[in-house]
Simulated assay, not measured.
Amino acid sequence: MLKRMKLLSKAGIVLLLVILSACGGSGNTEDEGNEASEEGSNSDSGMELGQEELTIPYVAWASATASNHVMEVVLEEAGYDVTLKQVNSGAMYTSVSDGSADATISVWLPHTDASYWEKYKKDLEHLGPNLEGAPLGLVVPKYMDIESIEDLKENKNSVGDKTEYTITGIEPGAGQMKLTKEKVMPKYGLDDWTLQASSSPAMATSLSEAIENEEPIIVTLWSPHWTFSEFDLKYLEDPKNIYGDPDNINTIVRNGLKKDAPKAHKILDQFKWTKDQIGEVMVKINDGMDPAKAAEEWVSNNQDTVDEWTKGVE
């Protein structure tokens, strides 16, 4: 719908120019020059659209689906033609670093995606957090009688047997999966356990089914995520602090985007929101609303916030 409106707007501008050129034979060049000078100095506060087509990759996490569809609406309202591309974690970084994509707003730092960031940071520009205080770890339903990751080893005859020594994970390339498999499980002595890779939606489905039957389950999970609004869940304590303090979700763009698409760069740089705000979008999507529709509705109802993101570019 936004792209169709942009085409109609461009058609209207062309028609207006034709009418003005047909009527403009009076030849007052001094006035016209002054008007052009004033228009040039005031338009868009000097902020140019630049490159009109943008590609933004994201992983199909609930939070990323919500945030990327909202950003698509905002950038298209600013005049861009945006393509969202669903990829795995590795491709999200490689595509932005090699310039085949322009930005990603789904980077978890300083802990979860640290290995990806160290590998590709020379080809990326870090614009900072767009959402602060995003914890992650191993999560269980509150009815389970365990409180710590250490309990998985100490109580393995009960919890381990009932869960088949399996932690239900998400996409295999996700930073949380690498951190869990390479550091958390070895340091807690979970040698008999398996981290089962799947996908974020599949993990959420397994969690929902287990809770419906009040069965034990352990999953890799993070906040913000719609499951925390839907179910009574708890993070297992991490006494060794391997998952670290809560991450921030960050915005990363390719080198050169500021020059190539100044408006988009400024909007992405100013994009910041809260867990409650992203939660509103996630809940609608989980309830069955199309992500694009949920994003359009949120933007329409939160213009004050969107105005902060677009300040200085309109």
Rank of each mutant, 00 (worst) to 15 (best):
A202V: 15
N302E: 01
L195C: 03
S41I: 10
L131S: 00
E164I: 10
N155H: 14
H111E: 02
L2K: 12
W222S: 08
K263F: 04
H265T: 01
L221R: 06
V139G: 07
E53D: 13
I252W: 02
T180I: 13
T104A: 01
L109E: 08
E171I: 13
K258F: 01
V306S: 00
P262Q: 09
T251S: 03
A114I: 07
W108F: 09
Q196H: 05
S9N: 08
E35G: 13
C23E: 10
K266G: 01
V299K: 00
V139T: 13
I167N: 05
L124Q: 05
G27I: 03
G288T: 03
D31W: 07
V253W: 05
I19F: 06
E212N: 09
P239A: 04
A11H: 04
Q51W: 13
S67F: 04
Y116D: 08
A264T: 09
N286C: 04
G189K: 14
D304R: 07
V82W: 01
M282Y: 03
A11S: 09
D191E: 13
N88D: 14
I146M: 08
T65A: 01
E77T: 09
D287N: 15
Q277S: 09
S67T: 11
G279C: 04
A264N: 02
M203A: 10
Y80S: 02
N130H: 08
H265V: 04
L268I: 11
S37Y: 15
L127H: 05
I56H: 02
